[in-house]
Amino acid sequence: MTKMSALFKTMGWTKFRQINQMILLELIAVAVTGIWTAIKGNFNLATLFYLTASWSMLPYVVGFILLAVSTEKAYTADTFRLIPIEETRFYLMNLLSSLATLVYFMVVQAVLYGLTFWLGWSRISGMLPPMATVGSNVVEPIIVMLLVSLMTALLIWSTISFVHLVTSATSNFLPKFRQRALNVVVYVIVIFITIRVAGFIVHGVAWFARITFNGTDLGQFWLALAAMAVVILVEGALNVFLLKRWVETAAN
């Protein structure tokens, strides 16, 4: 049997490579626009920070999607599914290697922000609001914010997996036409749920910003995190069951 660490390493490597490409693209974008700004004569110490801030979202979203695609591909690729390892472990390692890569990406982004912020400090400091308006307890909101973003990533990925695996499993029972019809129904339901969840998150972020700056109780946020964890676990159990019993790899 293959060790979980070995699987984590190999699955992580491919994803790590993809994310590094994203980081490279981001750096190139910042550099090119930086040079352009310099040519136009508008360059100052804070420029790099602004450019990093404005560019960072795009590679993050693309990287997130790339990780989702890699995660899904592994479930139906012989290259991965022939590896002798129990399905629960396989599922865990697949999801965790994606998460680890995402954390790595976040850290790199944070370092970039920190570096450029430090470079431009002399200019930026004057424009910041006075520190007094930020709530007294900053540590807990930051932890909660990090947890929320990671849990959101896990929730989105496991939901995508759930849809993918259900639609793939239906070919076991249904004739082709009915399988397609059912898949459409599944897509519609999931899109509806996703919109609701997205609404919840957007609403939550607005609310979160309010509490961060007013120092209100975070209790409700912990509750939401717990709810997300339950959904991730339930979806995980269902996904592993589907992998064990019904899901097949793509034929050669």
Partner: peptide, 18 residues
């Protein structure tokens, strides 16, 4: 199936690789 995989070497077509 999991236990069988440890005893079988199948000529998979490497589609899982970039």
């Amino acid at each position: 199936a999991t236990a069988r995989k440890a005893h079988v070497s199948f000529s998979e077509q490497l589609h899982g690789f970039n």
